[in-house]
Amino acid sequence: MIQKKTVKQIIFYSAILALWQIVAMLKIWPPYLFPSPLKVFDTLVHGFMDTTFIFGIIISMRRLLIGYGISIVLGGLLGLVMSKFKTVEDTLGGLVLGLQTLPSICWLPLALLWFGLNEKAIIFIVIIGALFSVTMATYSAVKNLPQLYVKAGRNMGARRFRLLIEVIMPAAMPPIISGLKQGWSFAWRSLMAGELLFLNLGLGYLLAMGRELNDMSQVIAVMITITLISIFTDKLIFGRIELGIRRRWGP
């Protein structure tokens, strides 16, 4: 079955590439607006050889990991506090829910005024991008936790911190993981949006540069790179975590 699927995929992508090559060869649009796949491949290889793409990836990933890491810690704590204290839930809860609807890039002007045109501003955007998803996911996971697990834990002598670490957190993990996954994709989008508007090396910047230089093959090469990174992180990191959860909790 898997092989059949792979064959289909190979045919599908080859067809896209062939069609793309044919349209490019028809020269309906000038090559700088509609480059051939070979040209894009060439740019991709070139970008990696002269290290601009590699540095772009490293710089972007660094921002993403720092920002995302901070929003996991912060969002986890916020969500936990919201689920445990009624006053916080009634006040901060509504605010978080409201802020979640605001696209994180809208925070950029504020970030620029606060931090200036620098690394801090863009990391701030990434943090905001993931923060509210992580907060809401942690909050609702802990809030809707089956009380049975908590009772069972207390029954066997778990209290306070041990109860939190040994029972509440693991029991709430499946919905929290989906929140983390959503947070990751929001953080990634925020990063790209921020980098596009922000003239400092990174994947988004390489994308913007391609446009500035009227170099469509660079634009597409960077787009492909970004897509591949997204797919890899999704499959390798979250795919594995979700598999682990399914193995434990069952389908």
């Binding site: 049975l148 009772k151 029954n155 066997m156 693991p170 029991a171 993990m173 909790w249």
Partner: peptide, 28 residues
Amino acid sequence: PDRLMIFQELGLFPWLTVQKNVEFGLKL
């Protein structure tokens, strides 16, 4: 753990193996 309840719905922990479930209270 001197008065232990076996709940109607059991409340076994799905994130732990059988072994770790049984070890749970001992770990505490």
